[in-house]
Design a protein around this nucleic acid. Structure first.
Length: 115
DNA sequence: ATCCTGACTGTTC
DNA sequence: AGAACAGCCAGGA
């Protein structure tokens, strides 16, 4: 095999990164994509998360869009995401957005234990 | 292979 | 600050 056989698929890298987001912190789709080596793959991150099956242990709720708001289409899921974040101490403003400056994950402190 | 859709984003108005 | 646009990449039909 001449080409480097991707030890991990882009999706796996995305999932690994999401799993590393510390509790009480958040990351944007574009941020995860960039860390995963996909410069303009923000949508792919969303796509990857949308492909998640029930029963996984990924803190998917810690991923939001660049505006600091929840991007889920489904109202119910969006509500759940917000609820989970608030439970971790994330504050939402009247417009339903969070302060990215305050909660954005550095991408460096890769210590994270689920739940 | 082509077209459409989508948990996105940066730029411009 | 909010809305419109175009660019992006992957799947499924």
């Amino acid at each position: 095999m001449t080409q480097l056989p991707a030890a991990e698929s882009p999706y796996d890298r995305i999932y690994s990164l999401v799993a590393r987001i510390p509790r009480g912190r958040i990351a944007t789709y574009g941020q995860i994509a960039r860390l995963a080596g996909i410069p303009n793959g923000a949508r792919q991150v969303g796509y990857a998360l949308a492909a998640l099956r029930s029963g996984h242990q990924l803190p998917w709720h810690r991923v939001i869009n660049a505006s600091g708001a929840v991007s889920l289409r489904d109202a119910g899921s969006a509500e759940e995401q917000r609820f989970r974040l608030e439970k971790e101490g994330i504050r939402f403003d009247a417009a339903g957005r969070v302060d990215l400056r305050a909660y954005r994950w550095d991408g460096v402190d890769t210590r994270c234990v689920f739940a």
